[in-house]
């Protein structure tokens, strides 16, 4: 059972992000970067499948700057066998990323390509399905359960208001939703072994992008909360505020 897990280095969800002086990028100074949390669910799934099969490899791959090596090392510490860094500044254009990834994946031996359902930095949700299309493979995104019988994967997908269950024949592409797995903590030994595992670095020429970031802005600051009173006496004032100020009634 060979898997390729595509991961992305993203700002920690708790990081206080500030906008860079160009107004179009985030200022990385002082920001903690982590592996995209949805990718962790995918990586855990790949590790479980390898453990269940008792054989195979888990390769972790990312497109990113030199600093993305840390993200790969943490995946290796969790138990991935080897890593591939496609060295390039990640472009905003999902299709450019998907092309670079699928070019690097094509020609490798794999049964499954796994992603997180989205990266929590740009939230585009494009790359998994695009990679599947470029590799001409079946694809299921936003999955919350995965079972394998022979070469047939049965997965549960989250859809509006419910779930659907679909089957895919391997090789296939899947994208993990929260709840698919509970990612393990790397062990101390895993961390020490990670530096001895192969990390392949490839400089990639990205295809021209039809996409440009023009402007980034932070959401408006939330005004301080107000306590309008206690118990049932507060209800008329609350209703008035919801109707006249918040305009939600």
């Amino acid at each position: 059972m060979n898997s390729i897990v595509c991961v992305k280095r993203v700002p920690d969800s708790e990081a206080r992000v500030t906008i860079g002086s160009d107004g179009r990028s985030i200022d990385p100074s002082g920001v903690k970067f982590v592996m995209n949390p949805y990718d962790e669910y995918a990586l855990e799934q790949a590790l479980l499948l390898k453990e269940q099969a008792g054989e195979g490899r888990v390769t972790v791959m990312t497109l990113g700057p030199d600093a993305a090596r840390d993200t790969l090392r943490s995946a290796l510490a969790m138990g991935a066998d080897d890593a591939v860094l496609l060295r390039a500044e990640p472009p905003p254009d999902g299709l450019v990323v998907a092309r670079a990834l699928s070019d690097a994946i094509r020609g490798r031996e794999f049964d499954l390509v796994l992603f997180g359902k989205q990266a929590i930095d740009d939230d585009n949700m494009q790359v998994p399905a695009m990679v599947a299309e470029l590799l001409e493979l079946p694809c299921a995104t936003v999955i919350t359960a995965f079972q394998l019988h022979g070469r047939i994967a049965t997965v549960r997908r989250e859809v509006e208001g419910g779930h659907e269950v679909v089957e895919l024949e391997l090789p296939a592409v899947i994208a993990a939703q929260k709840g698919l797995t509970k990612p393990r903590h790397p062990t101390v030994k895993g961390i020490m072994m990670a530096k001895k595992k192969p990390l392949e670095e490839i400089d990639v020429e990205l295809a021209p992008s039809g996409f440009e970031w023009l402007d980034l802005s932070l959401p408006p600051e939330r005004p301080a909360a107000r306590i309008v009173g206690e118990g049932s006496e507060a209800v008329p004032e609350l209703v008035r505020l919801l109707r006249d100020e918040a305009k939600v009634l």
Binding site: D70, R73, S74, A77, H185, P186, V188, I191, M192, A194, K195
Partner: peptide
Amino acid sequence: EEERAVRDM
């Protein structure tokens, strides 16, 4: 790098 990784874990 390993010392930081152990600490963070």
